[in-house]
């Protein structure tokens, strides 16, 4: 059983607090380095001038938006298969961050599109897929909010996330297919050869976004744990709960 020690909320709660702090601080440091590289050190692009610099936000957000969906579905599958409370709470706390990342990717994509393509929105395959991904996230969050009983909500959202994760590749493929059929909207953003220094900045930002997501998820997870386990003995023993009384 020792391997499952942290599978119980009471044990995981303090650990999550420490981890959230460390991931949060690391995310901030990485973001500062990444932004300095991205905004000052990286050279200006010949064709896109300074506007390309939005990739330091856009690309990490787009990657995280997809990655987080898979992670959420993974925790959902664990929750369904092993009936563990904590993994369902994990899935629940990932969803809003995933939706946020998707929204950021769409928004920065639109801002980037205006100077480079001359339009905020094009029915480009990637943008369309990202939009659908946002709908999938919002569907999961809406389903969660519509269900009163947290245990039913956990399982229902896990099933939906799993159905979604099977469908994401199919949706992506279909949108790609549709897009090549309608050649008009196909857009190539600049040349793909990327400078080493740009790549370094990008990697720093990807890790910054990643660590930020972990930190925020853990903070949210702690809140959910307290909410769910209110009345449990371990919650009453917490120093922050005692102070409130």
């Amino acid at each position: 059983m020792s391997g499952f020690k942290y599978a119980a909320p009471a044990q995981f709660y303090p650990l999550a607090g420490k981890m959230a702090l460390w991931f949060g601080v690391s995310a901030a440091v990485l973001a500062v380095i990444g932004l300095v590289i991205g905004l000052y050190i990286a050279p200006i692009d010949v064709t896109q001038k300074d506007s390309y610099r939005i990739i330091f936000i856009h690309v990490p957000a787009a990657w995280m938006s997809m990655f987080l969906y898979v992670v959420m579905a993974f925790w959902g599958a664990i929750a369904l298969g092993m009936n563990t409370r904590l993994s369902a709470m994990m899935a629940q706390s990932i969803a809003p961050t995933g939706a946020l990342m998707t929204a950021i990717a769409l928004w920065t994509g639109a801002l980037w599109g205006k100077p480079t393509w001359g339009t905020y929105w094009a029915w480009d395959a990637r943008m369309t897929s990202e939009l659908i991904l946002l709908f999938l996230y919002l569907g999961i969050i809406a389903l969660r909010n519509a269900i009163d009983d947290p245990r039913r909500a956990d399982k229902a959202c896990s099933v939906l996330a799993l159905v979604g994760v099977v469908n994401v590749p199919i949706i992506y493929m279909s949108v790609n297919w549709w897009n090549t059929l309608h050649q008009g909207a196909t857009i190539k953003a600049g040349n793909s050869s990327i400078d080493d220094i740009m790549l370094a900045g990008l990697l720093f930002m990807v890790f910054a976004f990643w660590f930020y997501s972990v930190a925020v998820t853990l903070v949210r997870l702690r809140t959910i744990m307290l909410e769910r386990e209110v009345g449990a003995a371990w919650v009453a023993r917490l120093p922050e709960v005692k102070e409130e009384r």
Partner: peptide
């Protein structure tokens, strides 16, 4: 999934299912 939910299954159902209908 939306059985018996008070927020009247209809609109929630649309949000859940329409993205999956896209392909």
């Amino acid at each position: 999934l939306t059985l018996g939910l008070r927020s009247g299954g209809g609109s929630l159902l649309a949000l859940l299912i329409l993205p999956l209908y896209i392909p």
